[in-house]
Amino acid sequence: MLNIGVIVGSTRPGRKAPAVADWVMDVAGMRGDAIYELVDIADFDLPLLDEPVPPSQGQYTKPHTQAWAARIASFDGFVFVTPEYNHGTSGALKNAIDFLYKEWNNKAAGFVGYGSVGGARAIESLRLVMGELMVADVRAQVMLSLFTDFADGKVNPPERQVEALDAMLDQVVAWSRAFQPLRGATPPDDAADGAPPHGRRVSSM
């Protein structure tokens, strides 16, 4: 079964990222095409990149890096939940991405952005990063407006946003499966046991 990580891409106090990620998990949990797991970068307490060797060498020396690497390596694809700060993604998310290299390779990713203009520019900045990491970023994306898609601290989007999320997840799952040969994995038999997969919240550490 494919494993898709839903990455909470902000560590700021008062952040909206967990509410957005919860909404993604609620929608994903109704699909039955993959196992979706919530991954909050705040749980890993990553400092500003402190590895002495470039990540492309895979010589991780810090326990926090090794824990983060093991978590990311377990996934076949990703959904990045990103705020938009100053026309880009959050520094915390960019730092977390930069800690690793091979753990990202030959996987797929989709994006859920939020902000005053839906996080569009944050998503575009992440697309550039994904290319260098050999991550196939899908075309469909979700852009949530702080003015119209939130209510009482929770995500309350119209149906069109749910449809956009489903379309993005369709592409992430399809591309994650298509890239399995490059990762040396055997494509799953989706009907192997007749039991549908589900979204789940698990400990990030």
Results as ranks from 00 to 15, higher is better:
106 N>D: 15
89 T>D: 10
116 S>K: 15
108 A>P: 01
27 V>C: 05
132 E>P: 02
189 D>R: 11
96 A>D: 11
150 F>K: 02
112 V>F: 00
125 S>V: 04
39 V>L: 08
162 V>G: 03
130 M>L: 15
145 S>G: 14
143 M>N: 05
56 S>W: 15
166 D>Q: 13
82 T>D: 03
82 T>F: 02
24 V>N: 00
75 F>D: 00
63 P>N: 15
101 Y>K: 11
147 F>Q: 07
192 A>R: 13
35 I>Q: 12
185 A>P: 05
42 A>T: 14
38 L>T: 04
195 A>F: 09
135 V>Q: 01
133 L>C: 05
137 D>S: 12
126 L>D: 01
125 S>A: 13
134 M>S: 06
106 N>S: 15
121 R>G: 02
90 S>T: 10
171 Q>F: 08
168 M>C: 11
168 M>Q: 12
184 G>F: 15
75 F>A: 08
53 V>T: 13
49 L>W: 07
161 Q>I: 07
118 G>Y: 00
79 V>K: 00
116 S>Y: 07
14 G>C: 12
108 A>H: 03
201 R>H: 07
12 R>C: 11
27 V>W: 01
97 I>R: 07
55 P>Q: 10
61 T>G: 08
48 L>G: 12
119 G>E: 12
114 Y>R: 02
134 M>C: 14
111 F>S: 13
88 G>Y: 05
197 P>Q: 13
174 A>C: 07
109 A>H: 01
191 A>C: 09
170 D>K: 12
49 L>E: 07
128 L>V: 15
152 D>E: 13
156 N>E: 14
40 D>R: 08
32 G>M: 06
203 S>I: 10
138 V>N: 02
133 L>A: 06
26 D>E: 10
49 L>D: 15
152 D>H: 12
192 A>Q: 08
182 L>F: 14
124 E>H: 14
94 K>V: 15
145 S>H: 08
150 F>Q: 07
42 A>Y: 07
90 S>R: 03
49 L>N: 10
69 A>C: 06
29 G>F: 02
112 V>Y: 00
174 A>M: 07
153 G>Y: 15
205 M>A: 15
129 V>G: 05
90 S>N: 14
119 G>T: 02
4 I>L: 11
124 E>D: 13
184 G>V: 13
25 M>L: 14
85 Y>Q: 04
26 D>K: 06
25 M>Y: 01
120 A>Q: 09
32 G>C: 10
50 D>P: 05
194 G>Y: 08
166 D>V: 08
156 N>K: 12
145 S>F: 05
152 D>P: 04
17 A>Q: 04
125 S>W: 04
18 P>M: 05
117 V>W: 13
183 R>L: 12
150 F>I: 05
121 R>L: 14
23 W>A: 00
86 N>I: 02
124 E>G: 09
10 S>N: 13
128 L>M: 10
197 P>V: 13
181 P>I: 11
120 A>K: 10
77 G>Y: 01
168 M>D: 01
60 Y>R: 05
13 P>K: 06
53 V>M: 11
165 L>N: 01
33 D>I: 03
91 G>E: 04
11 T>C: 06
18 P>N: 06
21 A>H: 05
153 G>M: 08
122 A>M: 05
157 P>K: 03
30 M>Y: 04
199 G>E: 00
155 V>R: 00
50 D>A: 08
181 P>H: 09
7 I>V: 09
145 S>V: 06
72 I>S: 02
13 P>A: 06
51 E>F: 04
182 L>E: 12
150 F>S: 04
105 N>S: 07
60 Y>S: 14
